[in-house]
């Protein structure tokens, strides 16, 4: 490649705000962002935001395995899964920002940070709308696999329903995600069975991990005001309707693994609020501190 071909050349003329790499393209450039008739743009924005936050936060937890996984193949696998979820999150947060620009944190005048990055890196813990299951620390490999199994069973069922969303953008993001999460779920399910049928120690760990994850199980299906409104307006499924299909797949894996579905006391809600209302565990604050520190140090940075 000659010097003339360098993708960095364009940056040299305006290097002042440059931080690292080349600037991102708008992930929805040219996509029709019209809000469907009869839908409040703020409802759509809030709904896309919580869908994006689930993917973003689990992606961050999964990349903590980078260079730490039990072997190279699984290091790469977890990084790939995290990348898919990050890509889904980016599209969903961009969709949220386009539907309701009021969601996006206000940055200093002239900041080149795109809206989806502002949402990811400049919101505080209480403004995140993910379920708490995705934010708790990754734990050991057994717990990571147990969470990925329950999450991807839920995510796949949810994305399948979203392919018929009245919002064409959500439907398109979901149709793409279905193909990706199918691979994630197979990966988690195979590892779950392998660990459960492996040594006494591997079985002990994956069963313990499942117990820890299942303490946040009900929150996935309890719904929130935002999800109820989305269901009423045909944007997405009623969360409680996913419990049956998700349970069926989880039980299928547990049966092959010869693991009983644990009966676990649920981590309660605080004054009726949980992750969807911005009421999180302490863990998300620590996680975000690490995830956001560099971006917040350079609010004028071009990434």
């Amino acid at each position: 490649m000659s010097h003339d071909d360098s993708v960095y050349d364009g940056l040299l003329t305006e290097s002042e705000g440059w931080a690292f790499g080349t600037s991102f393209e708008d992930p929805l450039a040219g996509v029709d962002l019209t809000v469907p008739d009869g839908v409040d743009p703020r409802e759509l924005g809030a709904y896309a935001l919580l869908l994006g936050d689930d993917a973003l936060v689990l992606s961050q937890r999964l990349i903590e395995w980078c260079s730490n996984a039990p072997d190279l193949e699984d290091d790469i696998a977890l990084a790939n899964i995290a990348l898919d979820l990050l890509g889904q999150a980016r599209l969903l947060l961009a969709r949220a920002a386009a539907a309701d620009p009021g969601l996006v944190p206000v940055l200093p005048v002239g900041s080149p940070v795109p809206p989806e990055d502002a949402l990811a890196f400049f919101r505080d813990d209480r403004d995140f709308r993910n379920v708490r299951m995705v934010e708790v620390p990754a734990g050991d490999f057994g717990e990571t696999i147990a969470r990925l199994l329950v999450f991807s069973c839920h995510r796949l069922a949810l994305l399948q329903e979203l392919t018929t969303s009245r919002d064409q953008v959500l439907a398109a993001i979901a149709a793409k995600g279905v193909k990706e999460v199918t691979y994630h779920r197979d990966y988690a399910a195979r590892w779950f069975v392998t660990l459960a049928q492996g040594t006494e120690e591997s079985r002990r760990r994956v069963v313990a991990g499942l117990g820890a994850v299942m303490a946040f199980h009900d929150e996935l299906f309890e719904g929130s005001e935002v999800e109820s409104a989305a269901a009423r307006h045909g944007l997405g499924p009623d969360p409680s309707s996913l419990a049956g299909p998700v349970g069926a797949v989880v039980d299928q894996v547990l049966a092959v693994a010869e693991v009983e579905r644990p009966v676990v006391r649920q981590v309660g809600r605080a004054a009726g609020a949980a992750g969807r209302e911005g009421h999180h565990t302490e863990a998300i604050s620590r996680m975000l501190a690490e995830m956001q520190v560099v971006a917040r140090a350079h609010p004028q940075g071009l990434w």
């Binding site: 993708v7 364009g10 080349t22 600037s23 991102f24 393209e25 992930p27 040219g30 990348l83 898919d84 979820l85 990050l86 890509g87 889904q88 980016r90 599209l91 993001i173 793409k176 995600g177 990706e180």
Partner: peptide, 18 residues
């Protein structure tokens, strides 16, 4: 020109555009 990503998180999109 209209392009489509292979995967949602495909990091090559910006380079393809450039």
């Amino acid at each position: 020109v209209t392009i489509t990503p292979t995967y949602s998180g495909c990091p090559a999109m910006a380079t393809m555009r450039d």
